[in-house]
Design a protein around this nucleic acid. Structure first.
Lengths: 145, 145
DNA sequence: TATTGTTATACTCTATAACTATA
DNA sequence: TATAGTTATAGAGTATAACAATA
């Protein structure tokens, strides 16, 4: 199950460290952006998801990798602010589809636009460099899929 | 304060998306690794910090970017498991230095080793490619510092 | 007076288990 | 009987405000 430990060279460790920094910065900015809209990180993630398409409660839990029971409360709070609504699923009466309201979609859009991280610093790289970065990240991620 | 919105090209958005994926994967794995040692993410981060050097409670809060009052509970729980201890600061009797115990340092080391993310997938890149990735990430991060 | 750590409080997120209404 | 969503519960993280000890 666990891959065998492998001695990492200095270069690899440096890249791992840089990635850890990117992760920390990204998270900070995401939480701050959510807070500017009086949303928690979890609420912002659910809203961003529902702004794309309505989803059954259970699927939201799968995407967020948490227990379905947690989604109830998060959607409750978004619904109380009219950012999200629950609809019946015509095909299965057990299912409730959570969907972003018009206002919810507007909030999600503003939130997305306020996420400058990675976009601003990326502007300092040339197009060729951005393409190189894209290819390297793709290969990094692709091998795990 | 807020930088002016800038229309992002498709390439930039793709890179931003890849970075978001990296962030999600990294976080997942970090939480899982912490859970394998019966630690929460926050506890693991504090322990990793203290495994390097003892720190005043207040400095831990600064590094984690949270309120100092929260650190009390996190260190309490680490201390209850003998992974961390509180020591007086000889120079300022108001200050308490939190320090990892021998067992705490061992746990932190095992935790660090179990973080395969970014290390394993990086193995698929050549040394030249890893160096290129390092330089691009450095430039991305450096411009914000 | 200001600072350090703590306590008290309230809210949110999280997992677990039990419940309901459907299928 | 299995599944979707919910409720109840308990533990943990978080911010805010107020406090004691020390500077």
């Amino acid at each position: 199950m666990t891959p065998p430990p492998r001695p990492a060279d200095a270069l690899t460790l440096e890249v791992v460290d840089l990635i850890a920094t990117v992760v920390a910065r990204y998270h900070e900015e995401y939480e701050e952006a959510a807070a500017r809209h009086s949303l928690t990180g979890a609420q912002a993630r659910v809203l961003a998801l529902l702004a794309r398409e309505p989803l059954p409660m259970r699927k939201i839990a799968l995407k967020l990798k948490c227990e379905p029971s947690n989604i109830t409360g998060i959607v409750d709070r978004l619904e109380a602010r009219d950012l999200v609504e629950r609809r019946p699923d015509p095909d299965d009466r057990r299912v409730k589809l959570a969907a972003a309201t018009e206002e919810g979609r507007r909030t999600a859009a503003r939130l997305r636009e306020s996420l400058h991280f990675a976009r601003e610093p990326l502007a300092g790289l040339s197009e060729t460099e951005r393409a190189t970065l894209r290819d390297l990240l793709r290969r990094m991620l692709g091998e795990q899929a």
